[in-house]
Design a protein around this nucleic acid. Structure first.
Length: 292
DNA sequence: CTGCAGGCCGGCG
DNA sequence: CGCCGGCCTGCA
């Protein structure tokens, strides 16, 4: 992989095991919008970015080396050897082998843990279009302005910016019953009671217990925060979709969510989170479980 | 118009 | 413990 500046754009050549369409459409993030078949625009880590992929070439529009190395390389997880992960997961597992072939460009984004926490609180009993709308509204109303390529975008608001709001002020984002959870989470982080960015240095069980103290965060939401925001790759978040997908491919009958989680973590070990992403993308794109 | 969406919480047996 | 109804809102 080599990188060059071309005018205002940055171009990465020789990209392997990464496709933006796989990565942005496998359910882990909510702030990227598809512009056309090979381009997306989004906001992450306080920066806006338009990105285009043509085969093994990635174009970062209006970006410099500093932003690439400080922000995007880590966020997009571009320095990890996904080829190795895919080989290990594909061994002796024909379902995963197919999933990996199908969604071979998936990366697990290293998202901001705080944004991740609020995003997955919002995801509870909700659908993706509305989740995206609520998070966009949160940023537009309470986040900072970002000027980029002649347009204005908005960063995800800081904990302090949300913690000082009343329920009434927050109601503009139309989050419904989740509004009180958002405020509680913001207050916990803003006050220092929850050191969200320090959780990655704790053992998994300790970190998870801390998250579960926040109202609105249960087992599934906690696993999402740990996996997508805190790089705890042994997590295997199971929502209703993953439950159906695992039942369809591995059990051929119904299982409790807790049993699906323990089975998967036992089977996939430290690569559980990666396995979950490949299976989720494969199952959903093949419409597994869309009607029972 | 009823039903329901990428869960969580609280009450009950 | 496990099970189940209710929850905001928007959209089919």
């Amino acid at each position: 992989m080599n990188i060059e500046q071309s005018g205002k754009n940055l171009i990465l050549h020789g990209v392997k095991d990464f496709y933006i369409s796989h990565t942005f459409d496998c359910g882990q993030c909510f702030r990227w919008d598809r512009l056309d078949s090979c381009s997306y625009i989004g906001v992450a880590m306080g920066k806006a970015l338009k990105i285009r992929q043509i085969d093994d070439k990635l174009i970062f529009f209006d970006t410099n080396f500093n932003d690439y190395y400080d922000v995007w390389e880590k966020y997009l997880d571009l320095s990890r050897d996904y080829g190795k992960i895919k080989r290990v997961l594909s061994t002796n597992d024909s379902i995963l082998a197919k999933s990996v072939r199908f969604g071979g460009g998936i990366h697990i984004l290293r998202q901001d843990a705080w944004e991740c926490m609020i995003s997955f609180i919002v995801s509870s009993s909700n659908n993706i279009p509305r989740i995206k709308k609520i998070i966009a509204s949160l940023a537009e109303n309470f986040g900072g302005k970002i000027e980029y390529m002649g347009n204005v975008y908005h960063s995800f608001p800081a904990p302090q910016a949300l913690a000082k709001l009343s329920l009434d002020e927050l109601s503009v984002i139309r989050a419904g019953f989740r509004d009180k959870y958002i405020l509680a989470a913001a207050k916990a982080v803003a006050s220092g009671r929850l050191d969200i960015y320090g959780l990655d240095s704790l053992p998994l069980d300790k970190a998870k217990a801390k998250l579960l103290e926040i109202p609105g965060i249960g087992n599934k939401v906690a696993d999402c925060i740990l996996l997508y925001g805190l790089a705890k790759y042994e997590c295997f978040p199971v929502d209703v979709w993953m439950k159906r997908i695992m039942e369809y491919y591995y059990f051929q009958s119904e299982r409790k969510i807790s049993d699906v989680v323990s089975f998967s973590r036992e089977k996939f070990g430290s690569l559980s989170g990666f396995a979950q992403q490949y299976l989720f993308f494969y199952g959903r794109e093949n419409k597994i479980g869309t009607s029972g």
